[in-house]
Design a protein around this nucleic acid. Structure first.
Lengths: 139, 139
DNA sequence: CAGGAGTCTGGACTCTGTCTAACCGCCCGC
DNA sequence: GCGGGCGGTTAGACAGAGTCCAGACTCCTG
C-alpha cells in the first residue's frame, strides 16, 4: 500500500515554478505553510517544522520565508507590531484581524469594491494593496 | 512683544478635551507630534522630545503614546514590522507606504470608495479599517 | 576526486517595546 | 500652611523578534 498523498513532489514542483531551488529545509517550510493553509508567524513555522523530524535553524526559517516572499510564493501580512505573518493564499484578498485574539481571517477580494484609487506619487508603482479590518468583540 | 504662537495652551486644551491630565511630558510629546503633523515612531518621538530641553524617559514616551491612542488623540499605523508609527491626523484617511524609503503619506478618505464591506463575524464589531497601498520606485 | 557556489547552522547581537520598584510632585483635606 | 496619598515619571533590567556572521556542509561540475 503506497503512501497515497505524499505532498513532497507537488511542493518540489511548486518551488521550481517560482525559481526556488528545492532543498529539504525549504520543502519542509513550504509543507508547514501549505498543509495548513493558514497564516503562520515565523516562530510558528519554526515550531511546526521542528515538531517533525526535520531540525532546521531559526536563521534558515527567516531566510527562507523572506525568499518565498521575494519569489511570490507567499505573502507577508503585517497587522501585529510584534510579529509578521505569512499567508500561503496568493489569491487577491483582504483580512479581518481580531485585535483581542490575534486571529486573522481572509476576505475574498471580490466581496469588497475599492474604487477611485488615487494616482501614485511620480516615479512610483504599486507594490501591493492591503485592506485590514480590525475587529473586536462587543455590542 | 509677546510670544505670538506658543502652542502650549492649545495643547493643554486638547489634552483636556480627551480626558488626559496635562503634564509637562505629555505636552512635550503632543507638541512633537502636532508641531510636525507627520507620522513618527516611538523612538523618533523620544529623540524629538529630548532634542529640546525636556528630558523624558523611554517608558514615559511609550506609556504616553499608548494613552494617546486609547483616548483617541492619535492613531497607530502598522505598516513596518520593525516599528509602530503614530499619526496625529485623526481625520478618516488611508496611507501610501514606500517600502524602499519607509515614507508614509496620507490619502484623504473621500478619494477612495470602499464598497460592499462584508458582514463581520458574529459577536464582533469593527475597531478600525486600514487601507495601505505599498509603493516602490520603478517603471 | 577536487573545486566551488550556494545553503545551512548556532550563537551572538541589535532593537523595539515591556516591566518593576523606587521616586517625585501635585492636590486635597485638615 | 502641613502632611498624606496617589497618579505620573524614572532608570534600568528584561523579553522577544529578527539579523548577522563565520564556519561547516552539500551537491553539482569538470
Amino acid at each position: 500500500m503506497p503512501h497515497l498523498t505524499d505532498p513532497r513532489p507537488q511542493l518540489t514542483e511548486r518551488l521550481r515554478e517560482h525559481g526556488i531551488g528545492p532543498t529539504h529545509q525549504r520543502i519542509e517550510i513550504a509543507r508547514a505553510l501549505f498543509a495548513r493553509m493558514t497564516h503562520l508567524s515565523a516562530d510558528q513555522v519554526l515550531a511546526a517544522v521542528n515538531a517533525r523530524h526535520a531540525e532546521t535553524s531559526k536563521a534558515t526559517v527567516y531566510n527562507t520565508l523572506k525568499l518565498f516572499v521575494e519569489k511570490g510564493l507567499v505573502r507577508e501580512v503585517i497587522v501585529d507590531p510584534t510579529k509578521v505573518f505569512y499567508d500561503p493564499n496568493m489569491a487577491p484578498h483582504h483580512h479581518f484581524y481580531d485585535v483581542e485574539t490575534g486571529e486573522i481571517t481572509d476576505i475574498e477580494a471580490d466581496r469588497i469594491a475599492i474604487g477611485g484609487l488615487p494616482s501614485l506619487p511620480p516615479g512610483k508603482v504599486a507594490a501591493g494593496l492591503d485592506l485590514i479590518i480590525r475587529i473586536r468583540s462587543g455590542a
